[in-house]
Amino acid sequence: MTEVQTLVKDLANKHGRKRESLIPILQGIIQKDRFISEHAMIEIARELDISSAEVFGTATFYSFLDTDTRGKYVIRVCKTITCSMKGKNQILLSLEDGLKVKVGDTTPDKKFTLLETNCLGWCHKAPAMLINDDVYTELTPESVRQIIEEYKKRDIRVE
């Protein structure tokens, strides 16, 4: 069995093989791999005995179920009105500069993906962003640079 096949089987054992199990399974793939590959979608379809078009249709509907290649750390910067008013653009510039990528792209070493997202619900502490599931608020270009440096180091320790 490939790694993906094992993962899909484990997730199906945990969440069940019913249609209602689909989203928790897709979320499980994201949790581990940060994006859902075509291969994974086909495996899920086989495991749940539904058409792979259904899996694809469902996954692509949700903005947090990424189907494009993503880095280990997915950064989502809030672009909704209050964050925009409170300096979102400077935050993005700082991130683009620190990571050397543009919004929508992944660093060549597949560590970081930089995205924008809609209202994160931290308007009173704008600007805000998510890195995977962790929230960062009241950002400044400097604090963002520090956070990124911290993540870069964190990674070296892991490997």
């Binding site: 909704t80 009105i81 209050t82 809609n118 209202c119 619900g121 931290w122 308007c123 009173h124």
Partner: peptide, 11 residues
């Protein structure tokens, strides 16, 4: 699901 822009009380 609290997704309306500018809402953050449910959390």
């Amino acid at each position: 699901d609290e997704g309306e822009p500018g809402t953050f009380k449910d959390r």
